[in-house]
Simulated assay, not measured.
Amino acid sequence: MHTIEPDVERPDRELVEAFEEIPSTIVSDVTGNIGLTMDAGLRPAYDGVEMAGTAVTVKAAPGDNLIIHKAITLTEPGDVLIIDCDGYTDTGHVGELMCTSCQANGLAGLVIDGAYRDSREIAEMEFPVYGRGVNPQGPLKQDPGSINVTVSVGGVSVDPGDIVIGDDDGLAVIPREGADEVLERAHEKLSAEDSVREEVLEGEYLYELNGYDELFENLTIVGPEDSIQ
């Protein structure tokens, strides 16, 4: 069954923009590493990428981009297209012209669990694009798909209206419900790291500052003499 839902319940734009200064690593830390960071196979098209936006989700047939073209027309400034192509990399589903259209209409970025093409041009235009690979093969335009349904991208379930952030380290998803709390915890984490950094610069060790020495003392240490001969 194919579904097209034109309306998305978006979080407040100021809240989304506030995540532009939050690293993906911090989001991972404050959400307890519970699977809200996408896998390492999704890489940015260029170095120095920074992205934060509201998810508009797409479920596309591998090798076909007709539904992606439709989805672009349903976006608003500040959105991020989150495209589930089942990780298919034998076709470049998105290219420079589509990304130019996204950029011209104010989108914050595009994430595709599949391949894209025109990688050099996309990198030069500095429009945030993440994908699982690059392939020059063009797509078909004959299969239907779904827009604004729950998708799985990079091993993470994404709902329309979730906040997605990206940087050089990768991608993190913040569910729309509870995003305020995640932002608050992220600022607390950043402030705490600033304090720790000052101590580290003075010569202190994270091993002791974070209490890892106590953890180490509770371990059973095995030496070469304990190995099985």
Rank of each mutant, 00 (worst) to 15 (best):
V8A: 06
P11G: 09
E14C: 07
F19T: 08
E21S: 13
I22G: 02
I26Q: 03
S28M: 10
T31V: 09
N33A: 12
G35M: 08
M38I: 14
P44F: 09
A52E: 03
T57M: 07
I68D: 00
K70T: 15
L74F: 03
L74T: 01
T75E: 01
E76L: 03
D79R: 02
L81K: 00
I82W: 01
D86S: 14
D90W: 07
H93P: 00
V94I: 15
E96K: 14
E96G: 10
E96F: 14
M98P: 00
T100E: 10
Q103S: 10
Q103N: 09
A104S: 14
Y116S: 12
G133F: 08
P139W: 04
L140K: 11
G145L: 04
V151I: 14
G154E: 02
G155W: 02
I163H: 00
I165Y: 00
D167R: 10
G170N: 05
G170T: 07
E184R: 08
E184P: 00
R185I: 06
E188V: 11
S191K: 10
S191F: 07
E193S: 08
D194L: 07
E198A: 09
E199S: 10
E202Q: 12
E204F: 05
Y207I: 04
E217Y: 09
L219C: 13
P224G: 10
D226T: 13
